[in-house]
C-alpha cells in the first residue's frame, strides 16, 4: 500500500510540471488555433539559455532565469510575425508542418551550439528531500510542483479577472467579433505566443535542473499530447486535471509494469480517448456547419 501511495505521489508531482508544458500547448491552440509541435524545443531552448547564463556567463540563477525568459519572449514574437501570421488561413497540414520545421531548426541550432552532451544546470530551488512517514519525496519534485501550481493559479486568475486576459479569451473564442469590439487581434495573438513561450521556459528550466539538460528534453514534450487530448485541446482546466491523471497513470505503469511502459502508455491512452471521446473530458464538442 505504501508503495502505491509513493508511486501516486511521485506521479502527481511530476504531473504538475507536465501541466505547465500542457498549458504552453493549450494557450497557443486556444488563442490562435495552431497546434505547436515546437513547444518541446522552445522549452529546451529556454533551458539552454538559462544554462548559458548561469554557467557560461556566471550570472546569478534568478538573473539568468529572467534573461532566458526575455530571449524566448523575443523569439516568440519573431516566430509569430514571420512564420505563423503569413500562414493564417492555410490548411491544417501547412501550419502543422511549419511548427515541425521550427522544431527542427531549434533542435539543429541547439545541437550545433551545445552538442549532444548532458549538462546539469544549477537549481533555482532547494534540494532537501521531504520524509512523509516512510515515504521519501525528492525536494526538486516538490519544489517543481509548487512553482507549477503557483504559475498555473496565476494564469487562471489572469484569464478570469484582468482586462488583457479577458481580451485574449475573446480573441480565442471569436476573432472577428473581438476585432469589431476594438481588440487588436494581432497584438493578442503575439501576446499568446509570448505567454506560451514563457510558460515553456519555466517548465524547461524546472525539468532541466532536476533531470539534466540534453537535446532529449524536447522529445519529452510529445508525451504531453496524451494529457492535452484527454483534457480537451481547448480547455486550460482540462489540461491541468488531465496532466495530473496522466502523470499518475504513467508513474503507476512505470512502477508496476517496468520503465519500458513509459514509452507507450501515453500513446495508448491517446488512441483510446480519440476513439471513445475525441473532444476530451472538458473540451468543447465541435459542431460543424456547411
Amino acid at each position: 500500500m505504501s508503495e502505491f501511495i509513493e508511486y501516486s505521489l511521485l506521479g502527481l508531482l511530476s504531473g504538475g510540471v507536465t501541466a505547465l508544458v500542457a498549458l504552453s500547448f493549450v494557450l497557443i491552440y486556444k488563442g490562435t488555433g495552431v497546434v505547436n509541435f515546437a513547444v518541446g524545443e522552445v522549452m529546451m531552448l529556454g533551458a539552454y539559455f538559462y544554462y548559458a547564463g548561469t554557467v557560461t556567463f556566471g550570472l546569478a540563477p534568478w538573473l539568468a532565469f529572467i534573461g532566458s525568459m526575455a530571449l524566448i519572449a523575443l523569439l516568440a514574437m519573431v516566430v509569430e510575425r514571420a512564420v505563423l501570421r503569413p500562414l493564417s488561413g492555410q490548411p491544417v497540414v501547412a501550419v502543422l508542418m511549419a511548427t515541425i520545421g521550427l522544431a527542427s531548426i531549434i533542435h539543429g541550432g541547439v545541437e550545433a551550439v551545445w552538442g549532444g552532451d548532458t549538462y546539469s544546470p544549477p537549481t533555482l530551488l532547494p534540494r532537501t528531500p521531504l520524509m512523509l512517514g516512510d515515504i521519501l519525496i525528492p525536494g526538486t519534485a516538490l519544489g517543481n510542483f509548487a512553482v507549477a501550481a503557483l504559475l498555473i493559479g496565476g494564469f487562471l486568475a489572469f484569464f478570469r479577472y484582468s482586462k488583457t486576459g479577458i481580451a485574449l479569451r475573446a480573441t480565442a473564442s471569436d476573432p472577428v467579433t473581438a476585432a469589431t469590439l476594438g481588440i487588436n487581434i494581432n497584438r493578442a495573438q503575439r501576446l499568446t505566443w509570448v505567454l506560451s513561450g514563457l510558460v515553456g521556459t519555466v517548465a524547461g528550466v524546472l525539468i532541466a535542473s532536476s533531470a539534466g539538460l540534453s537535446p532529449l528534453l524536447a522529445s519529452a514534450a510529445l508525451g504531453v499530447f496524451a494529457a492535452i487530448i484527454l483534457g480537451g485541446m481547448d480547455s486550460v482546466l482540462g489540461a491541468i486535471v488531465a496532466s495530473l491523471i496522466v502523470g499518475w497513470v504513467e508513474a503507476l505503469g512505470a512502477g508496476y509494469l517496468g520503465g519500458k511502459s513509459r514509452d507507450i502508455v501515453p500513446y495508448v491512452v491517446v488512441l483510446a480517448i480519440l476513439v471513445i471521446r475525441p473532444y476530451g473530458i472538458f473540451g468543447t464538442r465541435g459542431i460543424e456547419r456547411l
Binding site: V83, M97, A98, I100, G101, L102, A103, S104, I105, I106, H107, G108, G109, V110, E111, A112
Partner: peptide, 13 residues
C-alpha cells in the same frame, strides 16, 4: 548533422 536539421526546417517553412 545539426546544420542539416536547420536547413531541413528552414526549407519547410
Amino acid at each position: 548533422l545539426p546544420m542539416g536539421q536547420v536547413v531541413f526546417g528552414a526549407l519547410i517553412i
